[in-house]
Design a protein around this nucleic acid. Structure first.
Length: 344
DNA sequence: AACTCAAGCAACCGCTGTTCA
DNA sequence: ATGAACAGCGGTTGCTTGAGT
C-alpha cells in the first residue's frame, strides 16, 4: 500500500468546469431515483463524466431543491456578520443557521460584500470611535449585495424599473446560447447593478422550493404569503408594503428587501402555475430535507417526481414540454439520461 | 464601438474528520 | 491499531459580466 491518498477520480477522465443543463438533469434525475448514498460511485452510475465531488458540490450548492437563491436580505447579512464574529470562517456552521443558504454562497457573500462593508465600517468608526453608529452602519451594509452599488441613482432606477415591469409577466429567463452554462450565473447575479432586470434560470426553482421548505404552512400561491414565508426565519420584518424607517432612503429600498428575486420568482411562478401545487411543493421540500433525496421518492411519490423533473427541465432550458404529453416525454428523456443498465 | 477593469460567483483543489474493514 | 475510502469543509481560482473610459 502506498502512502497518501488516491486521487478522488481520474482527472483525465472527467469533465470539469461549468455544468451543462443536461448534466444537471442527469444528476437530479439520478438522485431523485436513487439518492446519493455514494458520491464517488454516483457519476458512473448516473452516466456523468464528472468527479463525485463535483456532483456533490453541484447538488448541494445549486440543484438541491431547498437551496435558496437571490440576494441576501439584511437580516441574513446581519446573521452572517454576527455568526462570523463568533464562529469565524466556519461557513458550514454559519450556513446551518441560514436555511436554504449554502456555505459556498455565504462564503462568497462574505468575501465580496460583507468583509468590505465591515472594513468600511471600521474605517468610518475608528476615527470617531462612535459606538452608536453600529446599528446604522450594519444596516447600511444592508446593502445586501445591492447596496454596494456605488450609485444610489442606479439603485433607484432599478427600483423604478421594477415597478414599471411589475405588471408584466413577460420577463422570461434568459436562455443562453451557451449550452455549457445555462444556469448559475444569470440567477445569482440578480443583485448586480443593472437596469435590465436580471432573469432567472434553473436556480429560481430552488429559491422557490426553499421558501416552501422554510415555511411549509404558508400558502405560496399568494404573494403576501410568499413574502412572509420567504422571510419567516428572519422575523418577517420586511413587509414590502410597509415602509420601515430603513426604507426611507431610496438607496436602501432595493437593499432592504430581496425584492428582485421575488419579482423574478413571481414571473416564473406565473409561467409555472400549472405545475405549482402546494402539496407537491411541500412534499418535495419535505423529501429534500431528508439527507437522502431519493429515499423520499422511493416511497411511491412517482407523480411528484415527474412533476419535479418536468419543472426542472423547463428551468434548465430543456423545455421539451409544452403539452399534456410533457410528463411522458420527460420521463423518456430522463430514462435515457440514466443508463438503463443501472439497477438498484 | 472598443477596450479595460473590477465585481461576483461557480467550481476546483487540497486538507481534515469520520467510518469501517 | 491501522490505513483506506469517503464525505465534507474552507481557501482559491478562473470565467463571465457590467461599468467606466
Amino acid at each position: 500500500m502506498g502512502k497518501g491518498r488516491a486521487p478522488c477520480c481520474d482527472k483525465t477522465q472527467v469533465i470539469r468546469g461549468p455544468w451543462s443543463s443536461a448534466e444537471d438533469l442527469k444528476l437530479v434525475t439520478f438522485i431523485q431515483k436513487h439518492g446519493h448514498e455514494n458520491w464517488r460511485a454516483l457519476p458512473k452510475q448516473a452516466g456523468l463524466l464528472r468527479c463525485g465531488k463535483s456532483c456533490r458540490l453541484r447538488w448541494i450548492n445549486y440543484l438541491r431543491p431547498d437551496v435558496k437563491r437571490g440576494s441576501f436580505s439584511k437580516e441574513e447579512e446581519d446573521t452572517v456578520i454576527t455568526l462570523h464574529q463568533t464562529l469565524g470562517n466556519k461557513w458550514s456552521k454559519i450556513a446551518s443557521h441560514l436555511p436554504g443558504r449554502t456555505d459556498n454562497e455565504i462564503k462568497n457573500v462574505w468575501n465580496t460584500h460583507l468583509k468590505k462593508k465591515l472594513t468600511l465600517k471600521d474605517e468610518d468608526e475608528s476615527p470617531h470611535g462612535d459606538e452608536s453608529k453600529e446599528s446604522s452602519s450594519i444596516s447600511s451594509s444592508s446593502s445586501s449585495s445591492c447596496t454596494i452599488m456605488s450609485s444610489g441613482k442606479r439603485n433607484l432606477e432599478m427600483e423604478l424599473d421594477h415597478q414599471k415591469n411589475q405588471g408584466s409577466s413577460t420577463k422570461r429567463p434568459r436562455i443562453t446560447e451557451n449550452v455549457k452554462d445555462s444556469s448559475p450565473r444569470e440567477v445569482s447575479n440578480q443583485c448586480r447593478p443593472t437596469n435590465k432586470p436580471k432573469e432567472l434560470s434553473s436556480s429560481s426553482i430552488s429559491s422557490n422550493n426553499s421558501n416552501i421548505t422554510i415555511s411549509s404552512q404558508v400558502d405560496i400561491s399568494r404573494p403576501e404569503d410568499y413574502q412572509i414565508g420567504s422571510l419567516l426565519n428572519f422575523r418577517a420584518q420586511y413587509d414590502v408594503h410597509n415602509s420601515s424607517e430603513e426604507v426611507s432612503k431610496p438607496e436602501e429600498i432595493t437593499a432592504e428587501i430581496p425584492f428582485e428575486s421575488d419579482y423574478d420568482f413571481w414571473n416564473m411562478l406565473d409561467s409555472l402555475s400549472s405545475f405549482q401545487s402546494n402539496e407537491v411543493q411541500l412534499e418535495n421540500a419535505e423529501a429534500c430535507q431528508s439527507s437522502n433525496f431519493g429515499d423520499a421518492y422511493s416511497t411511491g411519490e412517482e407523480d411528484q417526481n415527474k412533476k419535479w423533473l418536468r419543472y426542472l427541465e423547463n428551468e434548465l432550458g430543456l423545455d421539451a414540454t409544452k403539452d399534456e404529453n410533457q410528463e411522458s416525454s420527460l420521463n423518456n428523456a430522463a430514462e435515457t439520461l440514466v443508463p438503463e443498465s443501472f439497477q438498484y
